[in-house]
């Protein structure tokens, strides 16, 4: 579904990604872990070209990210959830969710609204459809953000530290929504510090450090039998 070939990313002199090769299969849930500054978020943001790689090739669902038209096409198929939610504060919850289907897919209003309400129901927020983002808790906002991304009927969902900005008691409600998505067979790439979640939901775990992919494997291979010393020392500090 997603193929990442020799991706480099430099911000000025800072070499953030130093040649990453990775592959994400259809319906696979891939969790990317690593210390902060290791380049995991940058890698995720390269997949939908919010960051343009300095070098290398990314192909999503057979579409190479080479032209502006292709990038827009890929973005329609790839949903993204941000650490800081990034809901549109001037629009109601319902309008947040239905905006992209209406403007990008040219979906009629009634249909977009129905899809939006179904998705809000799914993330447990149907009763908040007419509220505004600032009236919601962080956990609720993040669930709206997930519904908003799902409204485009994406084939892939990217999650960039979706629970890092949340109060501890709200982490679970967001992870539960993500879990149910995974069980429905959504292809997902998740950057997170929630190791319990990674272990439970992930099909594969990638460990990154200093812009390199150090090790990858099943959750069990990484969390219980890591081969690389870097991986072991990172996990020993956080588990």
């Amino acid at each position: 579904m997603i193929s990442i070939k020799n991706i480099h990313k430099k911000f000025g002199k800072l070499h953030v990604l130093k040649g990453i090769d990775a592959h994400i299969a259809e319906k696979e849930v891939v969790v990317i872990i690593g210390p902060s500054g290791s380049g995991k978020s940058t890698l995720l943001r390269c997949i939908n070209y919010l960051e343009e790689p300095t070098e290398g090739e990314i192909i999503v669902d057979g579409i190479p990210l080479t032209s502006e038209a292709n990038i827009n096409k890929v973005r329609e198929e790839v949903g993204m959830v941000f650490q800081r939610f990034n809901l549109f504060p001037h629009k109601s919850v319902l309008d947040n969710v239905k905006l992209a289907p209406m403007t990008v897919r040219k979906m009629p209003k009634a249909e977009a609204e129905k899809i939006a309400l179904d998705l809000l129901e799914k993330v447990g927020l149907a009763d908040k459809a007419h509220a505004y983002p600032e009236q919601l808790s962080g956990g609720q906002q993040q669930r709206v953000a997930i519904a908003r991304a799902l409204a485009m009927r994406p084939k892939v969902m990217l999650f960039d530290e979706p629970t890092s900005a949340l109060d501890p008691e709200m982490v679970k409600e967001v992870l539960d929504v993500m879990k149910s998505l995974a069980h429905e067979g959504m292809t997902m790439a998740i950057v997170t510090h929630e190791m319990g979640f990674a272990r439970e939901v992930g099909d594969r775990v990638l460990f990154m450090d200093e812009g390199r992919l150090v090790e990858e494997g099943t959750p069990d291979e990484i969390f219980s039998h890591a081969k690389e010393e870097r991986t072991q020392s990172f996990l020993s500090k956080i588990l």
Binding site: V78, R84, H90, V104, A145, R148, A149
Partner: peptide, 29 residues
């Protein structure tokens, strides 16, 4: 906030659509 443009673009909206529906209404206020 530049996250607003990123959210719009990540949903497949063009730069112009994001400007019109997301950025300008907020900036105008």
């Amino acid at each position: 906030d530049k996250g607003q443009m990123e959210a719009g673009r990540s949903l497949g909206m063009t730069w112009g659509q994001t400007m019109r529906h997301i950025i300008l209404p907020q900036a105008f206020k």
